[in-house]
Simulated assay, not measured.
Amino acid sequence: MTLDDLRAELTKLDHLPGDTIVVMSKDGEGNGFSPLAQVEDAMYRAETTWSGEHYLTEEQVAADPEYGEDDLAPDDAVPAVFLWPTN
């Protein structure tokens, strides 16, 4: 799903009040749920068609002295939006 796809899906929910909570599924089979706690832009590198790795953006690495060149995303990583559950 792209950000445009997500935005299109969210427009279908315009009838819901603004204080409706957002909940994430633990996995694709619904084996647990947790309230959404954070949204982040970062880098993503697919390892398979269903799994991959999260990396910081160049700006995030540069902004934090704890990170260095070794923390940069691989060249084939792409920008992505990550939705983080509470648990």
Rank of each mutant, 00 (worst) to 15 (best):
E66S: 11
F82G: 00
V23C: 04
H54N: 09
Q38A: 12
P17C: 07
Y67F: 15
L3P: 07
A62K: 05
T20K: 03
G68E: 08
L13P: 05
L10W: 09
Y44T: 03
L6Y: 11
W50S: 15
K26G: 07
D14C: 10
L56W: 13
N87V: 13
T86I: 07
V22T: 14
P74K: 07
P85R: 00
K26V: 04
M43A: 02
F33G: 03
E58D: 15
G30S: 04
P79I: 08
T2P: 02
T86S: 12
D76V: 04
V23E: 11
E53I: 01
M24R: 04
D64E: 03
E69L: 06
E53M: 02
L6T: 05
A46T: 09
E59Q: 12
T86N: 12
D5I: 11
P79E: 07
D70P: 00
T2C: 05
V61K: 00
W84T: 09
P17Y: 07
M24P: 03
Y55F: 14
A77P: 01
D75G: 12
E59A: 15
V78E: 13
Y44A: 04
R45Y: 06
D4S: 13
A80E: 00
T86P: 01
T49A: 14
P65T: 03
D5P: 01
V81M: 11
A73F: 00
D27I: 14
M43D: 03
G32V: 09
D41Y: 06
K26F: 11
M24E: 07
D4H: 13
F33H: 14
T48W: 07
K26L: 15
D14M: 12
E40H: 04
N31I: 04
A46N: 11
R7S: 06
G30I: 09
A77F: 00
S51Y: 07
A62D: 13
T48E: 04
V39E: 11
A42I: 05
E29G: 12
P79A: 05
Y44G: 01
M43Q: 11
R45K: 10
G30W: 02
L3Q: 13
D41L: 12
A73P: 00
M43W: 01
S25L: 14
E66M: 04
D5A: 08
R7I: 02
L16S: 10
V39G: 08
E69V: 06
T2V: 11
G18K: 05
W50P: 05
F33N: 09
G18D: 14
E47D: 15
E58V: 15
T57G: 07
D64F: 00
P74Y: 08
L83A: 02
P85F: 01
T48K: 03
T57I: 11
Q60N: 09
W50Q: 14
E47F: 06
V78D: 04
P35G: 06
P35C: 08
T49P: 05
Q38P: 01
Q60G: 15
P85K: 02
D27L: 13
H15W: 15
Q38H: 11
A77Y: 01
V23Q: 13
G52Y: 02
M24D: 05
F82L: 00
R7A: 13
L36P: 01
D14Q: 12
V39W: 02
A46Q: 11
W50I: 15
Q60A: 14
A62Q: 10
D64L: 03
Q60F: 10
